[in-house]
Design a protein around this nucleic acid. Structure first.
Length: 376
RNA sequence: GGGAAGAUACCGAAGCGGUCAAACGGGGCAGACUGUAAAUCUGUUGGCUCAGCCUUCGUAGGUUCGAAUCCUGCUCUUCCCA
């Protein structure tokens, strides 16, 4: 994997870059649609490519390991073949599930023992088998197995958690060294910077991950309960230390405003369930603000879903029709909303990239931030 | 024509003398959702000059300190027998 830093915006730390993987190029800043179980929920590959213009999507180690399992995954020839997405893929390591599965898992030095949310069966994740599983899935970018520290963790816990993540990181790299890619293309491991809301821990973490000279670095453990301003300041702390010539991936973030604020602070890559999940739940993100399609106000609004939208669903269907579908729980409603939201997110980061290259990012961002949170 | 059961808030449906403006479900209205245990979850849903008051449990009366709950007439619905 290669990263070329193309341009840094004036008056901002925002960057435009180009990642090259064996499955193609990724223009940064980029948003990566989340496809947890091997599919971006409700969206065909054709729509993902032609309409949403996704350049890279996510998969999840935990979910794919449980189902369909690695036997099927390897027999399929890896996730690219299995889900027929031939562009870049990134897999999360299962680290987030260590956090989100909360009450049905047990954390030890070795790894995490957890119960399947599907059938309650017991399993163990460790840095080693997370790497092995991610080898079997075959994503272009794979993530370190970490503990995603809760946002409200006290200093002592956050410090111990960070140290554990550090020891796990070494084991991840060791495991990668003694294994090889299974499908003939390169896989890059991104370490994850933890440290919770404590600047000195974040600083330490950002310094320590660099010993591995990775192809890119991730900032994890944010947007997990802490104040949003705290998240921004942690990004600033970490990005001041991470190397400028490597992509920086802010995990799990966020709202359109979060994306622009993070881009402004030098983040290159994002993923978040928000456009897909909120879309399924009837919420649309647009350039002018947020629309809850369940609201009565759209009942007889026969104008296009989003006149400014870049996807065909924005112009093909009316707001009144979309509201009807959402209210009626028709699956098409969720699909339209998901396609719209993802297309909007991809437009947003694509436009940010253009504004960065034109040295007009800062004023554009200030203007956008004002309107993006408006409730329409 | 005879008999039986029943009529409860937007709908369905509990309640069967006071703690009932009335359980629960649906629908309606609104909110939440940030490396997906989520096409999920939460709140609210008679009115008002709102710690109180007013109107409401088919309808008209009655019993009672007190009725959605008991009694009588009426109207309507469903089922059974002719």
């Amino acid at each position: 994997m290669d990263f070329k830093l193309e341009h840094t915006a004036s008056g901002s730390k925002a960057r435009a870059g180009l990642i090259t993987t064996d499955h193609g190029k990724i223009e940064t800043p980029i948003f990566m649609p989340v496809g947890t179980a091997g599919s971006v929920k409700g969206v065909h590959v054709k729509e993902l490519k032609d309409d949403i213009k996704a350049q890279i999507i996510l998969g999840n180690t935990y979910h794919l390991y449980l189902r369909p399992g690695m036997d099927v995954m390897e027999a399929a020839g890896g996730l690219h073949k299995f889900n027929s997405w031939d562009k870049p893929i990134l897999t999360d390591s299962g680290g987030f599930q260590v956090f989100s599965l909360g009450d049905i898992r047990k954390l030890t030095e070795e790894g995490v023992r957890f119960q399947s949310h599907i059938d309650g069966s017991y399993h163990m994740f460790s840095p080693e088998n997370s790497m092995n599983i991610q080898r079997s899935i075959g994503a272009d970018i794979i993530m370190a197995f970490d503990e995603c520290t809760p946002g409200d963790a006290d200093y002592d816990y956050a410090k111990k958690s960070l140290e554990l993540t550090g020891r796990w990181l070494e084991r991840c790299f060791n495991q990668l060294e003694i294994t090889t890619p299974k499908y003939g293309h390169q896989q890059s491991l991104f370490p994850i910077v933890q440290g919770c809301v404590y600047p000195d821990l974040r600083t330490l973490a950002a310094q320590q991950v660099q010993q591995y000279n990775a192809d890119g670095y991730a900032i994890g453990g944010l947007a997990v309960g802490e104040e949003i301003e705290v998240m921004y300041s942690m990004i600033e702390v970490v990005n001041a230390i991470l190397p400028i010539n490597k992509p920086r991936y802010l995990m799990g973030v966020g709202t359109p405003v979060n994306l622009l604020e993070a881009i402004d602070r030098g983040v290159d890559m994002f993923d978040c369930v928000m456009p897909t999940r909120n879309g399924r739940n009837g919420m649309l993100f647009t350039k002018k603000g947020i629309m809850n399609m369940r609201n009565k106000k759209w009942e007889s609004d026969f104008t296009p879903v989003d006149p400014d939208g870049t996807s065909y669903v924005d112009h093909q269907y009316s707001r009144a029709y979309l509201r009807h579908l959402v209210i009626s729980k028709e699956m098409l409603g969720a699909q339209i909303a998901t396609i719209h939201n993802l297309a909007f997110y991809l437009w947003l980061v694509g436009e940010a990239r253009q504004q960065i290259k034109n040295d007009s990012f800062k004023p554009w961002k200030e203007q956008m931030v004002k309107q993006l949170s408006t409730r329409l």
